[in-house]
């Protein structure tokens, strides 16, 4: 597994974190290329099904990022999401997922530096855990 690279699915909100990623890019900031970005309208749009689907298809980590509280384009989408994610993260950990597989952040479209830093932190944390073992769908092996 020496050439293993973590695969991380990042759900970024259209109005803030996706803009942050964009700005990090045009500012030529360096961060690891282990992140596959999925643009969502708002963190409130992120259904737990999406996160489990990413894991099911073999993502080693999942990262959800959106606007800071108070800055949501839809006023309060991220505030509802915050409650959903708190429960989701706790429940995932409760059933045996390592805490560092799942990350959340608030990053505005001006925070390119924070985006690059967080990306490094997320990739580093997932790399330290090694490849994902759980919630991955494999084909049946029985008759």
């Amino acid at each position: 597994m020496s050439d293993w690279e973590p695969k991380i699915v990042a759900f970024l909100c259209n109005w803030c974190s996706y803009g942050g990623a964009d700005l990090a890019g045009v500012s030529r900031m360096q961060y690891p290329a282990n992140i596959r970005v999925i643009r969502v309208p708002c963190t409130g749009r992120v259904n737990p099904k999406f996160i489990l689907a990413a894991m099911r298809h073999g993502a080693d980590g999942v990262w959800v990022s959106g606007c800071h509280p108070g800055d949501c384009h839809y006023i309060e989408g991220n505030l509802y999401a915050r409650r959903k994610f708190a429960l989701l993260k706790n429940l995932l950990e409760h059933v045996g997922i390592e805490p560092d597989r799942l990350h959340f952040s608030w990053i505005s479209s001006a925070e390119a530096t924070k985006f690059a830093e967080t990306a490094r932190a997320v990739v580093g944390a997932v790399r330290a855990l090694g490849p994902a073992k759980h919630f991955i769908k494999k084909l049946a092996e029985v008759a």
Binding site: Y80, R82, R83, F85, A86, S105, A121
Partner: peptide, 16 residues
């Protein structure tokens, strides 16, 4: 219901 509402100061220590 708790997921149909929020408070500005809800816990968020897990969010970077």
């Amino acid at each position: 219901p708790p997921l149909d509402t929020y408070k500005p100061g809800d816990p968020e220590s897990f969010i970077k």
